[in-house]
Design a protein around this nucleic acid. Sequence first.
DNA 1: ATTGTTTCTGACGAAGCGTCAGAAATAAGG
DNA 2: CCTTATTTCTGACGCTTCGTCAGAAACAAT
Lengths: 243, 243
Amino acid sequence: MENLTRKQREIKEREDRILDLARRMLAEGGYLGLSMDGIAEQLEYSKGTIYNHFPCKEEIIISLAVETMDRRLGMFQRAAEFVGRSRERISAIGVAAELFVRLYPHHFFVEQIIRSASIWEKTTEKRRSLMQSCEHRCMGIVSGIIRDGIGQGDLKLPDGIVPEDVAFGLWSQCFGAYSIIATSDSLPQLGISDPFVAVRRNISTMLDGYAWQQLSSDYDYQQLFERISSEVFADEYQTLQSV
Amino acid sequence: MENLTRKQREIKEREDRILDLARRMLAEGGYLGLSMDGIAEQLEYSKGTIYNHFPCKEEIIISLAVETMDRRLGMFQRAAEFVGRSRERISAIGVAAELFVRLYPHHFFVEQIIRSASIWEKTTEKRRSLMQSCEHRCMGIVSGIIRDGIGQGDLKLPDGIVPEDVAFGLWSQCFGAYSIIATSDSLPQLGISDPFVAVRRNISTMLDGYAWQQLSSDYDYQQLFERISSEVFADEYQTLQSV
DNA sequence: ATTGTTTCTGACGAAGCGTCAGAAATAAGG
DNA sequence: CCTTATTTCTGACGCTTCGTCAGAAACAAT
Protein backbone atom coordinates (compact mmCIF):
# COMPACT_ATOMS: atom_id res chain seq x y z
CA MET A 1 0.00 0.00 0.00
CA GLU A 2 2.97 2.29 0.42
CA ASN A 3 3.67 2.70 -3.26
CA LEU A 4 2.85 6.37 -3.20
CA THR A 5 5.19 9.07 -4.32
CA ARG A 6 5.92 11.95 -2.03
CA LYS A 7 3.69 14.10 -4.18
CA GLN A 8 0.79 11.70 -3.90
CA ARG A 9 1.15 11.60 -0.15
CA GLU A 10 1.18 15.36 -0.08
CA ILE A 11 -2.01 15.47 -2.08
CA LYS A 12 -3.75 12.96 0.12
CA GLU A 13 -2.70 14.85 3.20
CA ARG A 14 -3.93 18.10 1.74
CA GLU A 15 -7.28 16.59 0.90
CA ASP A 16 -7.72 15.65 4.54
CA ARG A 17 -6.89 19.18 5.56
CA ILE A 18 -9.45 20.56 3.14
CA LEU A 19 -12.15 18.28 4.50
CA ASP A 20 -11.21 19.07 8.06
CA LEU A 21 -11.40 22.80 7.50
CA ALA A 22 -14.56 22.45 5.46
CA ARG A 23 -16.31 20.64 8.27
CA ARG A 24 -15.42 23.38 10.69
CA MET A 25 -16.60 26.08 8.33
CA LEU A 26 -19.84 24.22 7.78
CA ALA A 27 -20.40 23.80 11.49
CA GLU A 28 -19.66 27.46 12.02
CA GLY A 29 -21.85 29.06 9.39
CA GLY A 30 -23.90 26.38 7.67
CA TYR A 31 -23.98 25.93 3.94
CA LEU A 32 -23.08 29.56 3.34
CA GLY A 33 -20.25 29.47 5.83
CA LEU A 34 -18.44 26.99 3.66
CA SER A 35 -16.62 28.97 0.99
CA MET A 36 -14.18 27.77 -1.62
CA ASP A 37 -12.39 31.10 -1.58
CA GLY A 38 -12.16 30.86 2.18
CA ILE A 39 -10.66 27.39 2.06
CA ALA A 40 -8.07 28.48 -0.47
CA GLU A 41 -7.17 31.50 1.57
CA GLN A 42 -6.93 29.80 4.94
CA LEU A 43 -4.96 26.86 3.59
CA GLU A 44 -2.76 29.22 1.58
CA TYR A 45 -3.34 27.54 -1.75
CA SER A 46 -4.88 29.04 -4.82
CA LYS A 47 -8.47 28.32 -5.67
CA GLY A 48 -7.46 26.24 -8.64
CA THR A 49 -5.69 23.79 -6.38
CA ILE A 50 -8.75 23.30 -4.24
CA TYR A 51 -10.77 22.74 -7.39
CA ASN A 52 -8.29 20.03 -8.40
CA HIS A 53 -9.47 18.06 -5.40
CA PHE A 54 -13.18 18.74 -5.58
CA PRO A 55 -15.03 19.94 -8.66
CA CYS A 56 -17.54 21.89 -6.60
CA LYS A 57 -18.68 22.79 -3.14
CA GLU A 58 -21.34 20.14 -3.16
CA GLU A 59 -18.83 17.34 -3.68
CA ILE A 60 -17.03 18.45 -0.54
CA ILE A 61 -20.23 18.24 1.42
CA ILE A 62 -21.01 14.79 0.09
CA SER A 63 -17.51 13.65 0.99
CA LEU A 64 -18.05 14.90 4.50
CA ALA A 65 -21.34 13.07 4.65
CA VAL A 66 -19.71 9.82 3.54
CA GLU A 67 -17.07 10.24 6.24
CA THR A 68 -19.86 10.81 8.73
CA MET A 69 -21.82 7.75 7.75
CA ASP A 70 -18.72 5.59 7.67
CA ARG A 71 -17.90 6.60 11.17
CA ARG A 72 -21.36 5.79 12.43
CA LEU A 73 -21.41 2.54 10.53
CA GLY A 74 -18.25 1.57 12.39
CA MET A 75 -19.90 2.27 15.72
CA PHE A 76 -23.01 0.34 14.68
CA GLN A 77 -20.91 -2.65 13.73
CA ARG A 78 -19.20 -2.65 17.09
CA ALA A 79 -22.57 -2.33 18.78
CA ALA A 80 -24.04 -5.23 16.80
CA GLU A 81 -21.29 -7.50 18.10
CA PHE A 82 -22.45 -7.02 21.67
CA VAL A 83 -23.14 -10.44 23.15
CA GLY A 84 -26.60 -10.76 24.56
CA ARG A 85 -30.26 -11.22 23.76
CA SER A 86 -31.64 -9.44 20.71
CA ARG A 87 -33.15 -6.55 22.60
CA GLU A 88 -29.90 -5.96 24.42
CA ARG A 89 -28.15 -5.80 21.09
CA ILE A 90 -30.62 -3.32 19.68
CA SER A 91 -30.06 -1.27 22.81
CA ALA A 92 -26.39 -1.25 21.98
CA ILE A 93 -27.26 0.26 18.61
CA GLY A 94 -29.26 2.89 20.43
CA VAL A 95 -26.28 3.71 22.60
CA ALA A 96 -24.12 3.99 19.49
CA ALA A 97 -26.57 6.34 17.80
CA GLU A 98 -26.86 8.60 20.81
CA LEU A 99 -23.15 8.68 21.56
CA PHE A 100 -22.44 9.44 17.94
CA VAL A 101 -24.67 12.46 17.78
CA ARG A 102 -23.51 13.80 21.12
CA LEU A 103 -19.83 13.26 20.45
CA TYR A 104 -19.74 14.44 16.89
CA PRO A 105 -22.45 17.05 16.50
CA HIS A 106 -20.64 18.50 13.50
CA HIS A 107 -20.96 15.19 11.72
CA PHE A 108 -24.64 14.98 12.42
CA PHE A 109 -25.08 18.53 11.23
CA VAL A 110 -23.69 17.57 7.84
CA GLU A 111 -26.37 14.95 7.52
CA GLN A 112 -29.05 17.50 8.23
CA ILE A 113 -27.67 19.82 5.57
CA ILE A 114 -27.55 17.01 3.04
CA ARG A 115 -31.23 16.40 3.64
CA SER A 116 -32.36 19.94 2.98
CA ALA A 117 -30.06 21.82 0.65
CA SER A 118 -30.64 20.64 -2.86
CA ILE A 119 -27.13 19.64 -3.67
CA TRP A 120 -27.87 16.40 -5.42
CA GLU A 121 -28.18 17.79 -8.92
CA LYS A 122 -24.60 18.99 -8.99
CA THR A 123 -22.99 15.83 -7.73
CA THR A 124 -21.85 12.69 -9.43
CA GLU A 125 -23.81 9.48 -9.39
CA LYS A 126 -20.81 7.69 -7.87
CA ARG A 127 -20.79 9.69 -4.65
CA ARG A 128 -24.51 9.42 -4.32
CA SER A 129 -24.56 5.65 -4.56
CA LEU A 130 -21.65 5.51 -2.13
CA MET A 131 -23.81 7.34 0.37
CA GLN A 132 -26.79 5.14 -0.30
CA SER A 133 -24.75 2.03 0.28
CA CYS A 134 -23.68 3.35 3.69
CA GLU A 135 -27.28 4.05 4.53
CA HIS A 136 -28.29 0.58 3.38
CA ARG A 137 -25.67 -1.14 5.45
CA CYS A 138 -26.68 0.79 8.57
CA MET A 139 -30.28 -0.21 8.02
CA GLY A 140 -29.13 -3.76 7.31
CA ILE A 141 -27.47 -4.08 10.68
CA VAL A 142 -30.60 -2.94 12.49
CA SER A 143 -32.97 -5.06 10.43
CA GLY A 144 -30.63 -8.00 10.96
CA ILE A 145 -30.88 -7.74 14.72
CA ILE A 146 -34.65 -7.54 14.46
CA ARG A 147 -34.66 -10.69 12.33
CA ASP A 148 -32.42 -12.40 14.88
CA GLY A 149 -34.89 -11.43 17.57
CA ILE A 150 -37.72 -12.97 15.59
CA GLY A 151 -35.67 -16.09 14.93
CA GLN A 152 -34.86 -16.45 18.61
CA GLY A 153 -38.47 -16.00 19.65
CA ASP A 154 -37.94 -12.71 21.48
CA LEU A 155 -40.23 -10.88 19.13
CA LYS A 156 -43.12 -11.55 16.81
CA LEU A 157 -44.25 -8.89 14.40
CA PRO A 158 -47.92 -8.52 13.48
CA ASP A 159 -49.06 -9.31 9.95
CA GLY A 160 -48.12 -6.73 7.39
CA ILE A 161 -45.12 -5.47 9.34
CA VAL A 162 -41.63 -6.36 8.22
CA PRO A 163 -38.44 -5.84 10.21
CA GLU A 164 -37.54 -2.93 7.93
CA ASP A 165 -40.66 -1.07 9.02
CA VAL A 166 -39.56 -1.28 12.63
CA ALA A 167 -36.02 -0.28 11.73
CA PHE A 168 -37.47 2.69 9.89
CA GLY A 169 -39.32 3.63 13.07
CA LEU A 170 -36.13 3.58 15.11
CA TRP A 171 -34.30 5.54 12.45
CA SER A 172 -36.91 8.24 12.11
CA GLN A 173 -37.39 8.54 15.85
CA CYS A 174 -33.67 9.11 16.32
CA PHE A 175 -33.16 11.35 13.34
CA GLY A 176 -36.18 13.47 14.15
CA ALA A 177 -35.41 13.82 17.82
CA TYR A 178 -31.75 14.59 17.32
CA SER A 179 -32.60 17.15 14.65
CA ILE A 180 -35.03 18.90 16.91
CA ILE A 181 -32.62 18.80 19.82
CA ALA A 182 -29.85 20.26 17.70
CA THR A 183 -31.91 23.10 16.33
CA SER A 184 -34.34 24.06 19.02
CA ASP A 185 -33.09 25.76 22.12
CA SER A 186 -36.46 26.04 23.75
CA LEU A 187 -37.08 22.41 24.70
CA PRO A 188 -36.67 23.07 28.43
CA GLN A 189 -39.29 25.82 28.12
CA LEU A 190 -41.59 23.26 26.54
CA GLY A 191 -41.21 21.07 29.62
CA ILE A 192 -38.75 18.56 28.22
CA SER A 193 -35.93 18.64 30.72
CA ASP A 194 -33.75 15.88 29.31
CA PRO A 195 -34.65 15.16 25.69
CA PHE A 196 -32.10 12.36 25.29
CA VAL A 197 -33.65 10.46 28.15
CA ALA A 198 -37.06 11.10 26.62
CA VAL A 199 -35.93 9.58 23.32
CA ARG A 200 -34.68 6.46 25.05
CA ARG A 201 -37.91 6.03 26.98
CA ASN A 202 -40.04 6.56 23.90
CA ILE A 203 -38.09 4.06 21.86
CA SER A 204 -38.09 1.57 24.68
CA THR A 205 -41.84 1.98 24.99
CA MET A 206 -42.30 1.36 21.28
CA LEU A 207 -40.33 -1.88 21.56
CA ASP A 208 -42.48 -2.83 24.56
CA GLY A 209 -45.47 -2.19 22.31
CA TYR A 210 -44.08 -4.77 19.90
CA ALA A 211 -43.68 -7.06 22.94
CA TRP A 212 -39.99 -7.46 22.29
CA GLN A 213 -38.62 -9.52 25.18
CA GLN A 214 -37.42 -8.61 27.65
CA LEU A 215 -39.92 -5.90 28.37
CA SER A 216 -38.65 -2.75 30.01
CA SER A 217 -40.74 -3.64 33.04
CA ASP A 218 -38.66 -6.79 33.57
CA TYR A 219 -35.25 -5.43 32.83
CA ASP A 220 -33.18 -2.39 33.77
CA TYR A 221 -32.32 -0.88 30.42
CA GLN A 222 -31.02 2.25 32.05
CA GLN A 223 -28.35 0.18 33.70
CA LEU A 224 -27.65 -1.68 30.46
CA PHE A 225 -27.20 1.68 28.77
CA GLU A 226 -24.48 2.57 31.26
CA ARG A 227 -22.84 -0.83 30.87
CA ILE A 228 -22.73 -0.72 27.09
CA SER A 229 -21.45 2.84 27.18
CA SER A 230 -18.56 1.98 29.42
CA GLU A 231 -17.78 -1.46 27.99
CA VAL A 232 -18.32 -1.25 24.26
CA PHE A 233 -17.69 2.45 23.81
CA ALA A 234 -15.29 3.09 26.64
CA ASP A 235 -13.22 5.70 24.80
CA GLU A 236 -16.18 7.56 23.38
CA TYR A 237 -18.00 7.55 26.69
CA GLN A 238 -14.93 8.84 28.47
CA THR A 239 -14.68 11.71 26.02
CA LEU A 240 -18.32 12.61 26.43
CA GLN A 241 -18.09 12.65 30.23
CA SER A 242 -15.11 14.96 30.21
CA VAL A 243 -16.80 17.59 28.07
CA MET B 1 -60.72 46.83 9.16
CA GLU B 2 -61.18 48.21 5.69
CA ASN B 3 -59.51 51.53 6.41
CA LEU B 4 -56.70 50.83 3.99
CA THR B 5 -55.80 53.11 1.16
CA ARG B 6 -55.58 51.73 -2.34
CA LYS B 7 -51.81 51.92 -2.04
CA GLN B 8 -51.75 49.94 1.16
CA ARG B 9 -53.93 47.28 -0.38
CA GLU B 10 -51.61 47.13 -3.34
CA ILE B 11 -48.67 46.64 -1.03
CA LYS B 12 -50.34 43.88 0.94
CA GLU B 13 -51.31 42.13 -2.24
CA ARG B 14 -47.78 42.37 -3.58
CA GLU B 15 -46.39 40.94 -0.38
CA ASP B 16 -48.55 37.88 -0.86
CA ARG B 17 -47.31 37.53 -4.41
CA ILE B 18 -43.71 37.73 -3.23
CA LEU B 19 -44.26 35.02 -0.64
CA ASP B 20 -46.09 32.84 -3.11
CA LEU B 21 -43.34 33.07 -5.69
CA ALA B 22 -40.67 32.65 -3.01
CA ARG B 23 -42.21 29.41 -1.84
CA ARG B 24 -42.23 28.04 -5.35
CA MET B 25 -38.62 29.04 -5.92
CA LEU B 26 -37.62 27.47 -2.63
CA ALA B 27 -39.40 24.24 -3.46
CA GLU B 28 -37.78 24.21 -6.88
CA GLY B 29 -34.16 24.84 -5.99
CA GLY B 30 -33.79 24.92 -2.23
CA TYR B 31 -32.15 27.76 -0.39
CA LEU B 32 -30.08 28.71 -3.42
CA GLY B 33 -33.06 28.55 -5.75
CA LEU B 34 -34.61 31.45 -3.89
CA SER B 35 -33.10 34.61 -5.30
CA MET B 36 -34.01 38.20 -4.59
CA ASP B 37 -32.96 39.22 -8.08
CA GLY B 38 -35.15 36.47 -9.47
CA ILE B 39 -38.16 37.61 -7.49
CA ALA B 40 -37.71 41.18 -8.68
CA GLU B 41 -37.35 40.08 -12.26
CA GLN B 42 -40.28 37.69 -12.35
CA LEU B 43 -42.59 40.06 -10.54
CA GLU B 44 -41.37 42.95 -12.70
CA TYR B 45 -40.42 45.19 -9.83
CA SER B 46 -37.02 46.53 -9.02
CA LYS B 47 -34.95 44.94 -6.33
CA GLY B 48 -35.35 47.92 -4.06
CA THR B 49 -39.09 47.39 -3.96
CA ILE B 50 -38.69 43.80 -2.87
CA TYR B 51 -36.27 44.95 -0.19
CA ASN B 52 -38.91 47.39 1.04
CA HIS B 53 -40.98 44.38 1.98
CA PHE B 54 -38.29 42.14 3.42
CA PRO B 55 -34.91 43.32 4.64
CA CYS B 56 -33.24 40.08 3.58
CA LYS B 57 -33.73 36.65 2.10
CA GLU B 58 -33.84 35.04 5.50
CA GLU B 59 -36.81 37.10 6.61
CA ILE B 60 -38.75 35.81 3.63
CA ILE B 61 -37.99 32.25 4.64
CA ILE B 62 -39.04 32.87 8.21
CA SER B 63 -42.26 34.43 7.01
CA LEU B 64 -42.95 31.34 4.94
CA ALA B 65 -42.24 29.18 7.94
CA VAL B 66 -44.69 31.13 10.06
CA GLU B 67 -47.34 30.71 7.37
CA THR B 68 -46.58 27.01 7.38
CA MET B 69 -46.88 26.59 11.10
CA ASP B 70 -50.03 28.66 11.25
CA ARG B 71 -51.63 26.44 8.70
CA ARG B 72 -50.72 23.30 10.56
CA LEU B 73 -51.79 24.81 13.84
CA GLY B 74 -55.19 25.38 12.27
CA MET B 75 -55.46 21.76 11.25
CA PHE B 76 -54.33 20.61 14.70
CA GLN B 77 -56.99 22.75 16.33
CA ARG B 78 -59.68 21.25 14.16
CA ALA B 79 -58.33 17.79 14.95
CA ALA B 80 -58.30 18.43 18.69
CA GLU B 81 -62.01 19.21 18.56
CA PHE B 82 -62.81 15.71 17.38
CA VAL B 83 -65.30 14.19 19.80
CA GLY B 84 -64.17 10.90 21.23
CA ARG B 85 -61.91 9.22 23.72
CA SER B 86 -58.45 10.64 24.23
CA ARG B 87 -56.68 8.17 22.01
CA GLU B 88 -59.12 8.85 19.23
CA ARG B 89 -58.40 12.53 19.52
CA ILE B 90 -54.64 11.99 19.40
CA SER B 91 -55.25 9.90 16.30
CA ALA B 92 -56.98 12.88 14.77
CA ILE B 93 -53.83 14.89 15.36
CA GLY B 94 -51.91 12.16 13.61
CA VAL B 95 -54.24 12.36 10.64
CA ALA B 96 -53.77 16.12 10.54
CA ALA B 97 -49.99 15.82 10.62
CA GLU B 98 -49.90 13.27 7.84
CA LEU B 99 -52.42 15.05 5.64
CA PHE B 100 -50.55 18.28 6.11
CA VAL B 101 -47.22 16.93 4.96
CA ARG B 102 -48.75 15.06 2.03
CA LEU B 103 -50.92 17.91 0.87
CA TYR B 104 -48.44 20.71 1.31
CA PRO B 105 -44.99 19.22 0.80
CA HIS B 106 -43.65 22.68 -0.05
CA HIS B 107 -44.67 23.91 3.34
CA PHE B 108 -42.99 21.04 5.06
CA PHE B 109 -39.86 21.62 3.01
CA VAL B 110 -39.60 25.14 4.37
CA GLU B 111 -39.51 23.73 7.86
CA GLN B 112 -36.67 21.43 6.97
CA ILE B 113 -34.69 24.31 5.52
CA ILE B 114 -35.28 26.40 8.61
CA ARG B 115 -33.79 23.61 10.70
CA SER B 116 -30.55 23.31 8.80
CA ALA B 117 -29.54 26.52 7.09
CA SER B 118 -28.17 28.89 9.66
CA ILE B 119 -30.48 31.78 8.99
CA TRP B 120 -31.19 32.72 12.53
CA GLU B 121 -28.38 35.19 13.00
CA LYS B 122 -29.68 37.48 10.31
CA THR B 123 -33.26 37.62 11.47
CA THR B 124 -35.05 39.72 14.01
CA GLU B 125 -35.95 38.52 17.45
CA LYS B 126 -39.59 39.30 16.74
CA ARG B 127 -39.98 36.78 13.92
CA ARG B 128 -38.14 34.16 15.88
CA SER B 129 -40.37 34.41 18.91
CA LEU B 130 -43.39 34.39 16.61
CA MET B 131 -42.26 31.03 15.29
CA GLN B 132 -41.57 29.69 18.74
CA SER B 133 -45.01 30.63 19.89
CA CYS B 134 -46.52 28.65 17.02
CA GLU B 135 -44.39 25.67 17.97
CA HIS B 136 -45.41 26.00 21.60
CA ARG B 137 -49.09 26.10 20.79
CA CYS B 138 -48.82 23.02 18.59
CA MET B 139 -47.06 21.16 21.38
CA GLY B 140 -49.62 22.50 23.82
CA ILE B 141 -52.49 20.97 21.91
CA VAL B 142 -50.85 17.56 21.88
CA SER B 143 -49.75 17.68 25.52
CA GLY B 144 -53.25 18.81 26.41
CA ILE B 145 -54.82 15.75 24.87
CA ILE B 146 -52.34 13.55 26.70
CA ARG B 147 -53.27 15.24 29.98
CA ASP B 148 -56.93 14.74 29.18
CA GLY B 149 -56.20 11.07 28.61
CA ILE B 150 -54.53 10.82 32.00
CA GLY B 151 -57.38 12.68 33.66
CA GLN B 152 -59.93 10.38 32.10
CA GLY B 153 -58.03 7.26 33.15
CA ASP B 154 -57.18 6.14 29.61
CA LEU B 155 -53.49 6.47 30.26
CA LYS B 156 -51.05 6.45 33.12
CA LEU B 157 -47.49 7.55 32.58
CA PRO B 158 -44.65 5.92 34.49
CA ASP B 159 -42.71 7.93 37.05
CA GLY B 160 -40.33 10.45 35.59
CA ILE B 161 -42.27 10.83 32.35
CA VAL B 162 -44.35 13.92 31.73
CA PRO B 163 -46.91 14.41 28.94
CA GLU B 164 -44.45 16.67 27.13
CA ASP B 165 -41.98 13.82 26.83
CA VAL B 166 -44.57 11.73 25.03
CA ALA B 167 -45.57 14.66 22.83
CA PHE B 168 -41.91 15.09 21.98
CA GLY B 169 -41.82 11.46 20.95
CA LEU B 170 -44.74 11.90 18.59
CA TRP B 171 -43.27 15.08 17.19
CA SER B 172 -39.84 13.62 16.54
CA GLN B 173 -41.25 10.43 15.11
CA CYS B 174 -43.31 12.41 12.61
CA PHE B 175 -40.71 15.00 11.79
CA GLY B 176 -37.98 12.41 11.34
CA ALA B 177 -40.05 10.06 9.26
CA TYR B 178 -41.47 12.76 7.02
CA SER B 179 -38.01 14.24 6.52
CA ILE B 180 -36.59 10.91 5.50
CA ILE B 181 -39.53 10.18 3.23
CA ALA B 182 -39.19 13.55 1.54
CA THR B 183 -35.48 13.27 0.91
CA SER B 184 -34.77 9.61 0.34
CA ASP B 185 -35.98 7.97 -2.82
CA SER B 186 -34.61 4.56 -1.97
CA LEU B 187 -37.04 3.53 0.75
CA PRO B 188 -38.71 0.88 -1.42
CA GLN B 189 -35.26 -0.60 -2.09
CA LEU B 190 -34.76 -0.76 1.65
CA GLY B 191 -37.89 -2.87 1.94
CA ILE B 192 -40.24 -0.19 3.19
CA SER B 193 -43.09 -0.33 0.75
CA ASP B 194 -45.44 2.20 2.35
CA PRO B 195 -43.56 4.43 4.76
CA PHE B 196 -46.65 6.42 5.79
CA VAL B 197 -48.37 3.26 6.93
CA ALA B 198 -45.18 2.25 8.74
CA VAL B 199 -45.15 5.56 10.65
CA ARG B 200 -48.74 5.08 11.73
CA ARG B 201 -48.07 1.56 12.94
CA ASN B 202 -44.93 2.56 14.81
CA ILE B 203 -46.67 5.43 16.56
CA SER B 204 -49.65 3.29 17.38
CA THR B 205 -47.33 0.67 18.82
CA MET B 206 -45.60 3.26 20.98
CA LEU B 207 -48.95 4.34 22.38
CA ASP B 208 -49.78 0.69 23.03
CA GLY B 209 -46.49 0.52 24.90
CA TYR B 210 -47.73 3.32 27.15
CA ALA B 211 -50.95 1.25 27.54
CA TRP B 212 -53.04 4.13 26.25
CA GLN B 213 -56.62 2.80 26.01
CA GLN B 214 -57.97 1.63 23.77
CA LEU B 215 -55.13 -0.58 22.64
CA SER B 216 -54.73 -1.09 18.94
CA SER B 217 -55.56 -4.75 19.48
CA ASP B 218 -59.04 -3.78 20.68
CA TYR B 219 -59.82 -1.03 18.20
CA ASP B 220 -59.60 -0.54 14.46
CA TYR B 221 -57.46 2.58 14.17
CA GLN B 222 -57.05 2.06 10.46
CA GLN B 223 -60.78 2.53 10.06
CA LEU B 224 -60.75 5.51 12.42
CA PHE B 225 -58.05 7.03 10.25
CA GLU B 226 -60.33 6.83 7.23
CA ARG B 227 -63.25 8.22 9.19
CA ILE B 228 -61.37 11.22 10.52
CA SER B 229 -59.91 11.90 7.10
CA SER B 230 -63.27 12.02 5.44
CA GLU B 231 -65.19 13.68 8.27
CA VAL B 232 -62.89 16.22 9.85
CA PHE B 233 -60.69 16.89 6.85
CA ALA B 234 -63.11 16.23 4.04
CA ASP B 235 -61.76 18.92 1.72
CA GLU B 236 -58.13 18.11 2.30
CA TYR B 237 -58.71 14.38 1.95
CA GLN B 238 -60.58 14.93 -1.28
CA THR B 239 -57.70 16.94 -2.71
CA LEU B 240 -55.20 14.29 -1.72
CA GLN B 241 -57.18 11.50 -3.37
CA SER B 242 -57.46 13.38 -6.62
CA VAL B 243 -53.72 13.91 -6.97
C1' DA C 1 -49.21 75.24 -9.02
C1' DT C 2 -45.99 74.24 -5.31
C1' DT C 3 -44.13 71.82 -1.78
C1' DG C 4 -43.48 67.79 1.08
C1' DT C 5 -43.72 62.81 1.55
C1' DT C 6 -43.82 58.28 0.21
C1' DT C 7 -42.48 54.79 -2.96
C1' DC C 8 -39.73 52.99 -6.60
C1' DT C 9 -35.62 52.33 -9.37
C1' DG C 10 -31.37 50.46 -11.06
C1' DA C 11 -26.41 51.29 -10.85
C1' DC C 12 -22.99 50.03 -7.49
C1' DG C 13 -19.64 47.60 -4.39
C1' DA C 14 -18.66 43.40 -2.26
C1' DA C 15 -18.36 38.54 -2.18
C1' DG C 16 -18.66 33.95 -3.93
C1' DC C 17 -18.51 30.29 -7.72
C1' DG C 18 -16.16 27.90 -11.21
C1' DT C 19 -12.80 28.39 -15.45
C1' DC C 20 -8.62 28.43 -17.87
C1' DA C 21 -4.33 30.15 -20.10
C1' DG C 22 -0.03 30.36 -18.65
C1' DA C 23 3.67 29.85 -14.85
C1' DA C 24 6.14 26.77 -11.90
C1' DA C 25 7.52 22.41 -10.29
C1' DT C 26 8.48 17.79 -11.17
C1' DA C 27 9.73 13.66 -13.90
C1' DA C 28 11.85 11.45 -17.94
C1' DG C 29 15.23 11.01 -21.41
C1' DG C 30 19.70 11.73 -23.42
C1' DC D 1 23.67 18.29 -16.31
C1' DC D 2 20.68 20.03 -19.68
C1' DT D 3 16.43 19.53 -22.43
C1' DT D 4 11.88 18.14 -23.03
C1' DA D 5 7.37 16.35 -21.49
C1' DT D 6 4.09 16.12 -17.95
C1' DT D 7 1.96 17.29 -13.93
C1' DT D 8 0.54 20.65 -10.70
C1' DC D 9 -0.39 25.26 -9.29
C1' DT D 10 -1.82 30.05 -9.79
C1' DG D 11 -4.72 34.08 -9.81
C1' DA D 12 -7.13 37.05 -13.00
C1' DC D 13 -11.53 36.72 -15.28
C1' DG D 14 -16.56 36.40 -16.22
C1' DC D 15 -20.65 35.57 -14.09
C1' DT D 16 -24.23 35.58 -10.44
C1' DT D 17 -26.22 37.16 -6.19
C1' DC D 18 -26.68 40.02 -2.12
C1' DG D 19 -27.94 44.24 -0.03
C1' DT D 20 -27.41 49.63 -0.37
C1' DC D 21 -28.56 54.17 -1.54
C1' DA D 22 -28.87 58.59 -4.12
C1' DG D 23 -31.90 60.26 -7.05
C1' DA D 24 -36.29 59.79 -9.99
C1' DA D 25 -41.17 59.23 -10.03
C1' DA D 26 -45.61 59.04 -8.03
C1' DC D 27 -48.65 60.69 -4.80
C1' DA D 28 -50.70 63.81 -1.12
C1' DA D 29 -51.36 68.20 1.05
C1' DT D 30 -51.66 73.01 0.88
